[in-house]
Design a protein around this nucleic acid. Structure first.
Lengths: 138, 138
DNA sequence: GCTTGACCTCAAGTTGACTTGAACTTTTAT
DNA sequence: ATAAAAGTTCAAGTCAACTTGAGGTCAAGC
């Protein structure tokens, strides 16, 4: 398939496909002239990438999961990630319940609603961003 | 409390607190000299921000939820967001199960494992990034 | 055989959420 | 009184994940 067929089948723009290829997340099987040719299973790969992205993995992390040859995708890493997802799911569930409650609650501000405030306590600790990398000293 | 007390209590760096203030997400109650003074409930606010961030809301969206005076936080918006979270929760659950399975599965490649492939189909469609905004024409 | 449109490359721009740095002012500690 | 520590502003930098743009190539249809 050529790149437009992939864009149609996957919904991703060509620029993204080229970008993913450059990152090593997908591979084109060859060229006709300049044009990339992809084999059908790139779609499966893209689906997996989409899934992993949805689960909060970064492209780099996804790249590492697809170790070029490694049959040994680090299993403890996978389990750790699964646990992380469990925590995340709990958080999202709390937030969802909070929203549903907020939609019917008539406290003047949600901050004044005890139900809502309890949620804050429940779903506390989660870091979103790592500190910027400091430049390594030589 | 001054800004360092807030950083200690919240775990957020001072730069973030200033940034949030500039964005209108939190407010300092006054100054001593140049220095900001915060009242204790900023911590609650920060907890809520953290929760909402964790649930995937952008800072701008969070800002809108804290409408300055609006008693009428658009309830349908809240419910829509809750539904969105439900979908996300399903996705994460699928991914989590996929990871747990992958950790014990001994198919040569996860792509070759039918259980895993089924997941791909299940948890398909989710957009992560909106198209860049095109500059509005005058 | 030539135009046209799909594709290409490569560099630079974009967005969100912050962080970092430089230069300055205050408080606090000696 | 004075220096260090902690705070401030404002502009610029960073990072991920892409997108956009300029300029070039090439196969396909007329």
């Amino acid at each position: 398939m050529d790149i437009t067929e992939v864009t149609k089948a996957s919904g991703l723009p060509a620029s993204t496909l080229r970008f993913y290829e450059e990152k090593g997340l997908i591979r084109s099987t060859g060229r006709i002239g300049l044009r990339r040719i992809f084999s059908g299973d790139v779609l499966e790969r893209l689906a997996l990438i989409a899934l992993a992205r949805g689960a909060g993995f970064s492209l780099d992390e996804i790249g590492e999961m697809f170790t070029p040859e490694g049959p040994d995708i680090d299993r403890t890493l996978l389990l750790a990630k699964a646990d992380e997802l469990d925590r995340k799911i709990n958080e999202l569930t709390a937030m969802r319940d909070g929203l549903r409650h907020a939609a019917v609650c008539n406290a003047p501000s949600h901050f004044e609603c005890p139900k809502f405030r309890r949620l804050l306590r429940v779903a506390g600790k989660h870091r979103f961003r790592q500190p910027n990398k400091l430049k390594d000293k030589i």
